[in-house]
Amino acid sequence: MTAPAPVRPAGKFRTALLILPCILLVSACATQPVSDEQFRGLPEGVTIDQPLQSPLVTWGYKPQSITVTTWGSSSCPPSAVDMMLNSEKELVISFESVEGRDCTADLAPTTHVFTLPDDAQHSPLTVKTSLDGVLGSEATVLK
């Protein structure tokens, strides 16, 4: 029986050089969260008796921020995937539904907090939202 050949450090180094670009490529393609924060419920100080048909947009509690509250399954709330400034007074935020898992059949609010781009600090600000690529509601928020 022969002993296995020893692994040379140069071989490990070459393997690392081959694997590292693949890891970097995969991590670069991973989606970064668009919202700064996401939590169940309504923004502080907001009360609503029944779910709304469209997202609720308010000025945020953090400087230069807004909140967008969506309604849907509490176990599978939509995720914010893109925020695009069309003009200094119009912002479009895109959401996507969660796929591939079982979701509860309840209707609960989820609030997303977004820091506004520097060019979108004007009031009034029109915020348009889309879900799964379909442009939906439009809300104007005043300071």
Results as ranks from 00 to 15, higher is better:
Ala3Met: 04
Pro4Asp: 02
Arg8Gln: 13
Ala10Val: 15
Ala10Met: 09
Arg14Val: 13
Arg14Met: 14
Arg14Trp: 11
Thr15Glu: 15
Leu17Tyr: 04
Leu18Asn: 06
Leu18Thr: 09
Ile19Val: 15
Leu20His: 01
Leu20Trp: 05
Pro21Val: 08
Cys22Tyr: 10
Ile23Thr: 12
Val26Trp: 13
Ala30Arg: 11
Thr31Asn: 14
Thr31His: 14
Pro33Cys: 06
Val34Ser: 06
Ser35Arg: 03
Ser35Thr: 12
Gln38Thr: 15
Arg40Trp: 07
Arg40Glu: 14
Gly41Thr: 09
Pro43Lys: 05
Pro43Met: 01
Glu44Met: 12
Glu44Trp: 05
Val46Glu: 12
Val46Thr: 15
Ile48Trp: 04
Gln50Ala: 13
Pro51Arg: 07
Leu56Phe: 09
Gly60Leu: 03
Tyr61Gln: 13
Lys62Ala: 13
Pro63Phe: 03
Ser65Ile: 02
Thr67Tyr: 07
Val68Thr: 04
Thr69Trp: 00
Thr70Glu: 03
Ser74Asp: 09
Ser75Trp: 04
Ser75Thr: 15
Ser75Asp: 09
Cys76Tyr: 02
Pro77Tyr: 00
Pro77Gln: 04
Ser79Pro: 02
Asp82Asn: 14
Asp82Glu: 15
Met84Thr: 14
Glu90Cys: 02
Glu90Phe: 01
Val92Ala: 13
Ile93Trp: 01
Ser94Pro: 00
Glu96Asp: 15
Ser97Tyr: 00
Glu99Gln: 11
Ala105Val: 08
Pro109Gly: 10
Thr110Ser: 13
Thr110Met: 13
His112Ser: 15
His112Ile: 07
Phe114Met: 05
Asp118Val: 10
Ala120Gln: 01
His122Cys: 01
His122Tyr: 09
Ser123Phe: 04
Ser123Pro: 08
Pro124Met: 07
Thr126Ile: 11
Lys128Ser: 11
Thr129Asp: 04
Thr129Arg: 06
Asp132Asn: 13
Gly133Asp: 04
Gly136His: 04
Lys143Gly: 10
Lys143Val: 01
